[in-house]
Design a protein around this nucleic acid. Structure first.
Lengths: 242, 242
DNA sequence: TCAAGTTGTCTAACAACATAGACAACTTGA
DNA sequence: TCAAGTTGTCTATGTTGTTAGACAACTTGA
């Protein structure tokens, strides 16, 4: 690792940053693992520690690494690429990324529907709904936390079923729904709440993507409405403009 | 063309140099053509003229462009790739590069052979030789100047023939030699002489590749010996190690 | 011959890059 | 609790990059 010599027009810190990024890409520094210490990296590239720090700072800004004071600098997990298409299934998307999807029900209620949810589900205000609060994971890393509402008339014991299957897709299949599609998705963002932060294993002050979606069966009948908070630094939504 | 903004870790002059090099590669600035003036390039990239000059300096050092004071900066012709194989023909090699080969006889003599040439041609010292001094071109650009010796016993009126055909290959064909091969090639280099420089349209102080070669017919009988000076900045010899 | 346009060279000033050393703040494991 | 190792921050200094302006030297075409 000898950089330097003649002026190349590329700053040292940039060369170090590129080198580390390459190391992350090719698996030299696996996802989640600790990078060598700043002093050691400086030795590797024969460069001052401040130069290494600048390189790491740009990588941190891009979310590729995360520095923890007193402990070390760690490779961030690559963001989950989450396409928003007509067919949008958490478990499929996570699985397609080579990661293991999982869900964990936190809470469940059967209660009358508020006006906005009722409207989206094509029900009268006050119609009974099953509301499920759940966490979803990719390889045991929390990705999102959110609420899903099902019409109680059709999915009376949704809570029990979800608790057993830990997957919305499997839940719907259990009710004989082989296929369904995403009708709409709305996305915004906010700072994570303290309660969400704890459940998502996320530091306070980080941002979450807020996603509200409606899914319908092939007849166009609304099946569920969801409001989820996705950890912004762990997911990336992709909208293909066909 | 807006560079700048945030620190990228890549020096401006380097970005400009890369941009111009891309322009040369993709034909925006065709070979031999004049680049925009330094002032204009500076405007294009929104950069100081000194920055452009540094970019051009690195390109000139690599031989991609050539600055002419008072006139402009020109894209250098790409070097002629000149493979040194068993079958080595100037006209074929130039033609393979998509350029038009040409030759021009400068002088010719019939004279007794010096010892070293005689030895290479398998003749006795003092045997009569035809010595031809010629310039060779690719697309009207002088590539090399040199001497070729033929045994006068076999190629008595070589001078007249060469003057008409302007090609060694055609000359030999004229004498019924359909094929021949390169026996050996020796390469060295030197600074161009004043007389050669003028004929090669080359500035004083530039270097030339000095090539001495012997060609034989398919029986192994020596046909000719050449000593040529190739303009180093216009040619690149390639030796394939099979 | 001359004006306009070109590259070459010089000086000056400021910003960005890089190195060096020291110490604080924090985490980890013994 | 403590020592070792980590990242965070500060000051200082020298080098390289970038801009700015001026003028010289040269080429080209009218």
């Amino acid at each position: 690792m000898n950089i330097q010599d003649k002026p190349t027009g590329v700053a040292l810190w940039r060369q170090v940053a590129d080198g580390i990024e390459r190391g992350i890409a090719d698996g030299t520094y696996p996802s989640g693992e600790k990078l060598p210490g700043e002093t050691e990296i400086a030795e590797i590239y024969r460069v001052n520690r401040h130069t290494v720090r600048r390189a790491l700072a740009t990588l941190a800004e891009r979310g590729l690494v995360r520095a923890e004071r007193g402990s070390g600098t760690y490779v961030e997990a690559p963001k989950l690429s989450y396409p928003l298409r007509s067919r949008t299934r958490f478990s499929e998307i996570v699985g397609a990324g080579g990661r293991e999807p999982d869900g964990k029900m936190i809470d469940a209620f059967t209660e009358p529907s508020p006006r906005d949810i009722a409207k989206q589900l094509g029900l009268k205000t006050g119609a009974l709904l099953v509301r499920i609060e759940a966490l979803r994971f990719a390889d045991r890393t929390p990705i999102c936390i959110g609420t899903t509402w099902f019409p109680a008339s059709r999915f009376a014991d949704a809570a029990e079923v979800y608790a057993r299957l830990n997957s919305t897709t499997k839940l719907l299949a259990h009710y004989g729904i082989r296929d369904y599609r995403r009708l709409s998705t709305r996305i915004t963002a906010a700072i994570v709440s303290a309660t969400d932060a704890a459940k998502l294993d996320l530091a306070l002050g980080r941002s979450v993507l807020i996603v509200e979606s409606t899914d319908v069966d092939l007849d166009g009948t609304p099946l569920k409405v969801s409001r989820s908070r996705f950890v912004a630094e762990r997911v990336e939504f992709v909208v293909e403009n066909a």
